[in-house]
Design a protein around this nucleic acid. Structure first.
Length: 419
RNA sequence: GGAGAGAUGGCUGAGCGGUUGAAAGCACCGGUCUUGAAAACCGGCAAAGGGGCAACUCUUUCCUGGGUUCGAAUCCCAGUCUCUCCGCCA
């Protein structure tokens, strides 16, 4: 969320920056509501002052006047609250402003490739898709999942389940021991306010699974990514500057409705309602977002380097970025069956956009209170990494060569085959 | 599920109808002392919002939302969360 105080300073510039993201916002209404809101506040404060003075004086003859004032304040209060609500409603639906490095563009097709890495494998046979391979091995079972649960779920079995677990552990170990992330095993449910903090609510409610925990009015949601719960660790906090940076990593299931993607990636486990993801989150000094983004992205690509998977790094254009992001790198892994790169990680700096929503701040040397910078990135999407290994490491006989770095996590197994 | 206790500043923790935005301690910042550091001593130190170019000033806030009162951190009601004991359970 944007800081209203900052917007006010240069409303035109703000308007221009937001228009880059080609979304509909009623800027004039926003500006008017802000003005109205402040007028109400001023009126209210004059009356409150008078009331306070009467109370201090303890002068009985003024007590009836005080009662009148209370009624008047109450009236203004109602109007002011209403105004403020409309104001916040508009404000909370405005996305972050793209960083100056971000290329202008409409959609995916305007993203720019920054770097390519690794060898695209050559096969002397027709490479199969991950779901063909997995089903043939008897270790991916989509039919069973649709029977027990429904579409967009899968049973991962036997050596592939082990591979999935090995991937999580390998990634976690790497981020913890080499990159200084603190491992967290968080709740998988988040409150409404937590979801608001990172920007999933109110705008993207359709993509979230809501859970009825009990009869209370508090709404709970399954996390669509650990970003939500990890970033909110600093919600409502005033940290010391030397507590920063804070770096968290977790491997969690993620839950998404994938509303609006009907018919897209229906085959296989590319797009599921539930999937494992190792997520990195950094809370940093607000001036250090860009360097942290580079660092984090390197943490993600390092995993692919170690797994010897071919990938490319993209910078997302203004039109393709997520709601809370100011700058995003997508890492895309090569999938032979599709003959193209597919997203396996997304690393974003959210500048102070999320911390304003969460009220996550820190005190600097000059004792100024500043909003923290927040970043998040997948390191990596475990399900999609599994897919990439299946497809890139497949042999003609349908077996899978296990990447060397994972073998210690798999009882030194070299290869997965059906027998 | 049953019975209690509690929620106060960055943290710990007093206050329980009227200059209380709130004692004290810790942390933090500045200073004295010291070759330097530590210790000791002195001083400073809540946030949000409004007005003002600024110095500054005003309002709000003691979990949240209502209520009582001229006046609420303090009294009443509802909710949320936390803790303790009993029961149940992975």
């Amino acid at each position: 969320m944007h800081n209203l105080k900052e917007i006010r300073k240069d409303f035109i510039a703000f308007k221009k920056a937001i228009e880059k993201r080609s979304i509909d916002t009623n800027f004039e209404l926003l500006q008017n509501l802000d003005k109205k809101n402040r007028e109400f506040i001023q009126k209210k404060e004059i009356l409150e002052k008078e009331k306070k003075d009467i109370s201090k004086s303890k002068d009985k003859s003024l007590f009836s006047r005080s009662k009148e004032i209370s009624a008047a304040i109450e009236k203004i209060n109602i109007q002011q609250k209403k105004t403020k609500e409309s104001l916040e409603q508009i404000l909370s639906n405005i996305p972050n402003i793209p960083h100056k490095d971000v290329p202008n563009g409409k959609d995916e097709s305007d993203n720019i490739e920054i770097k390519k890495s690794g060898q695209i494998p050559k096969f002397d046979f027709q490479p199969k898709s991950h779901f063909e391979i997995g089903e043939k091995l008897g270790m991916l079972d989509f039919d069973l999942a649709s029977k027990t649960t429904g579409s967009r779920f899968v049973f991962v079995k036997d050596k592939l389940a082990l591979l999935e677990r090995a991937l999580s552990n390998f990634m976690l170990d790497n981020h913890v021991s080499k990159n200084g992330y603190l491992e967290i095993s968080p709740p998988l449910l988040a409150s409404e306010n937590t979801m608001f903090g990172t920007g999933q609510l109110p705008k993207f409610e359709d993509d979230q699974f809501e859970i009825k925990l009990d009869e209370s009015n508090e709404r709970k949601f399954l996390i669509p990514t650990a970003e939500v719960i990890l970033t909110n660790i600093v919600k409502d906090k005033i940290l010391n500057q030397n507590d920063l940076p804070m770096r968290f990593v977790a491997s969690t299931p993620c839950f998404r409705k994938e509303a609006g993607s009907y018919g897209k990636d229906t085959k296989g486990m590319i797009r599921q309602h539930q999937f494992y993801k190792v997520e990195m989150v950094s809370i940093v000094d607000q001036s250090k977002c860009m360097e942290e983004l580079e660092r984090m992205t390197n943490c993600a690509t390092e995993i692919l380097d170690l797994l010897e998977l071919p990938y490319r790094k993209m910078i997302l254009c203004s039109g393709d970025m997520g709601f809370s992001a100011e700058k995003t790198y997508d890492i895309e892994v090569w999938l032979p069956s599709e003959n193209k790169y597919r997203e396996i990680s997304s690393c974003s700096s959210c500048s102070t956009f999320q911390s304003v929503r969460m009220k996550a701040r820190y005190k600097n040397q000059k004792k100024e209170i500043l909003y923290a910078g927040t970043l998040n990135g997948s390191g990596l999407a475990v399900g999609r990494t599994l897919i990439a290994i299946l497809e890139n490491n497949q042999e003609k006989d349908g077996s899978i060569i296990i990447p060397k770095v994972l073998r210690p996590y798999m009882n030194n197994l070299q290869k997965i085959s059906s027998n």
